[in-house]
Amino acid sequence: MTELKLELKEKIIEQLNLEDVSVDDIADQDPLFGEGLGLDSIDALELIVMLDKDYGIKLADPKEGRKIFESVETMATYITENRSA
């Protein structure tokens, strides 16, 4: 799980072009949207694509993303329980 969380932080930084943000800047429970990393709606779509492409998880209902993408912690938990890739 720790390894997965680190992997997710690296992917988020790289795929969402978060300049000047390092893995150490993102705590496991930090909110990804709003006051946390400040991600926007396009970033949310990118995260949905990332789940599909890298972990074989298709979100049937994009509204599910609200809970899943709360933090790196919630993402890692969801991926661990649902991954096929």
Partner: peptide, 9 residues
Amino acid sequence: YFPSPAVFV
């Protein structure tokens, strides 16, 4: 087939 929303916009 994984189009990037961030590129598409």
